[in-house]
Amino acid sequence: MFSNYLIGLREGLEASLVVCILVAYLVKTENRDKLPPLWLGVGLAAAISLAFGAALEFGTSELTFQAQEAIGGSLSIVAVGLVTWMVFWMKRTARHLKAELHGKLDAALAMGTGALVATAFLAVGREGLETSLFVWRSVHAAGDGSAPLIGVLLGLGTSVLLGWLFYRGALRINLSRFFTWTGAMLVVVAAGVLAYGMHDLQEAEFLPGLADRAFDISGTIPPDSWYGTLLKGTFNFQPDPTWLQVGVWVLYLVPTLALFLAQGPGRPAQAPG
């Protein structure tokens, strides 16, 4: 549940900050009449993201077991690739995000209402689609009933509250440091999702080695125990992984996390106003 809360918080806060910056700039430049098109773009982005998540969930439910595992494993790789790119991109551009969005908004205002809707849609929609895909894979990897989904919703709710407080000036956040540490935790979560995706592809018979277990500590950490459930829900831990899962987990996590942390936290990002 914690890993999914983290995903909802991290991704939701990115989207919330983008919306805060756009709204604050329109208010500051006395373009309050342009707020409805902005919210229209945000609403469309949210609707598309929800529809994408629903299509992933219900569109695969009628497929055969092997087809479901093949699609799930393939989308795990895509989701991990997207979230890895996102955490590196956000860490690098957080300090410049305000100026970048202001420039896009100025161009949209000069072009008209349709451009403003499109700017808001694209700014928020990318975050929404990435979140839908990664949450879908993470929830399936956790496999803990409704708890992962509740975690995501709590994370999103927290991000909206933090975004509002940030906009009102009631909260000061060192965004660069925040995105550094949450990004590092997301890399750990992504490693678990990637390993789970490898297991899916093995079950779909796309990859060999399903019976080749690296170790089995199910007796020490039973999957149905409270601590086994906690480890699986937080880190996608599996007590009996295959050699392929362990190898992919290590080969992704160690260099990615080392490279990410080696870049340093950077300077604090600016407030939305």
Rank of each mutant, 00 (worst) to 15 (best):
S3A: 15
N4G: 00
N4A: 02
Y5D: 00
L9R: 06
E11I: 02
G12Q: 01
L17P: 00
V19A: 12
C20R: 01
I21F: 01
L22E: 05
L22F: 09
A24V: 11
Y25Q: 12
K28I: 05
N31K: 12
R32M: 06
R32V: 14
D33C: 04
K34P: 00
P37V: 08
L38T: 04
L38I: 12
L38S: 01
L40K: 07
L40F: 06
G41Y: 06
G41L: 07
G43D: 07
L44W: 05
A45D: 07
I48D: 04
L50Y: 10
A51T: 13
G53Y: 13
E57M: 11
E57D: 12
G59P: 05
G59K: 06
T60H: 06
S61R: 15
S61I: 14
L63K: 11
T64V: 08
Q68L: 03
G73R: 02
A79G: 13
V80G: 00
G81R: 11
V83N: 07
F88I: 08
K91G: 15
R92F: 08
R92L: 04
A94S: 10
R95L: 05
L97K: 08
E100N: 13
E100T: 12
H102N: 09
D106F: 07
A110W: 05
G112W: 05
T113R: 15
T113A: 14
G114D: 11
A115E: 10
L116D: 02
F121L: 13
A123L: 01
V124H: 02
E130N: 04
S132H: 01
F134V: 11
V139A: 11
H140P: 00
A142R: 04
G143A: 15
A147L: 15
A147H: 06
P148V: 10
L149T: 14
V152A: 04
V152S: 06
G155H: 00
S159G: 05
L161N: 01
G163H: 07
F166A: 06
Y167F: 13
R168Y: 08
I173C: 08
N174C: 08
F178Y: 15
F179W: 09
L186G: 02
L186R: 00
V187H: 04
V189L: 06
V193L: 06
G197A: 07
M198W: 01
L201I: 09
A204H: 02
G209M: 12
A214L: 04
F215W: 15
D216A: 10
D216M: 11
D216I: 11
I217V: 15
G219L: 11
T220Q: 12
I221A: 05
D224Q: 12
Y227H: 12
G228I: 06
L230E: 04
L230M: 13
L231F: 09
K232F: 01
T234S: 13
F235A: 12
N236Q: 15
F237T: 00
P239D: 10
P239N: 10
D240C: 00
T242Q: 09
T242D: 05
L244R: 03
V250C: 09
V254W: 10
T256I: 13
T256G: 10
L257P: 03
A258D: 01
L261F: 09
G264Q: 07
P272D: 02
